[in-house]
């Protein structure tokens, strides 16, 4: 039996085939092939994106159900390497190949959560509640600890008691807007994951 690239990924269920192919052996794939459903990516919408894990930044193609028309909800059903991408040329490592499982992970956060002092766990709350509460806590801390000048009268205009750690899998646009917001507040305890 010959297996073309798309069928190969399909047989893998998710596309981890890249590393597990040798472990499974093609023999077992053939056995699975007899039972699988008809090809389901034929009517999906393809969207170009980038693997969010490492800095090789492999191109990926995300398949979603529906054609984007009104009243249809796009659901991500498959992620595979972008064959046109000059760096990865369609390949993905075991991390990128399993991206669908990250997108659909059971441990994704789906609503704002709050944990009050001394409590053992989180409780779901509304966006309005968290944003109002966080803004209040930030303002109170800023007003109490913002330093306009040093003891010898030099301008400081900084707020040293609230820290901010930026992520490194966020977009450049997020990075810039974040920069603008935190610096306008006077935050100087600012860092990101580059060091670690």
């Amino acid at each position: 039996m010959t297996i073309n690239r798309r069928e190969f990924f399909r047989l893998g269920g998710t596309a981890v085939a890249g590393t597990t192919a040798s472990a499974l052996g093609f023999g077992s794939l053939e056995a699975v092939a007899a039972e699988v459903r008809p090809y389901k990516l034929a009517r999906t919408t393809e969207t170009r994106n980038t693997c969010p894990y490492c800095s090789v930044s492999c191109g990926v193609i995300i398949h979603t159900t529906g054609d984007g028309s009104k009243n249809t909800k796009a659901e991500i059903v498959h992620v595979e390497g972008d064959p046109d991408h000059p760096v990865n040329r369609g390949s993905l490592c075991p991390k990128g190949a399993a991206l669908l499982d990250f997108i659909r992970s059971e441990t994704r956060v789906k609503q704002p959560m709050h944990r009050a002092a001394g409590e053992a766990g989180f409780k779901p709350v509304s966006w309005d509640f968290v944003m109002e509460r966080v803004a209040r806590l930030m303002k109170d801390d800023r007003d109490a600890n913002f330093k306009q000048a040093s003891d010898d009268g030099k301008t400081l205009n900084h707020w040293p008691t609230t820290g901010f750690l930026a992520g490194c899998a966020t977009t450049n646009e997020t990075g810039w807007l974040t920069y603008k917001a935190v610096r306008s507040l006077g935050i100087i305890a600012l860092d990101n994951q580059a060091r670690i």
């Binding site: 930044s57 899998a169 994951q193």
Partner: peptide, 14 residues
Amino acid sequence: GHSNVQGITDFGLF
């Protein structure tokens, strides 16, 4: 390291 650690470094979030 991360996909956009280069970008976030370029944007000076230090």
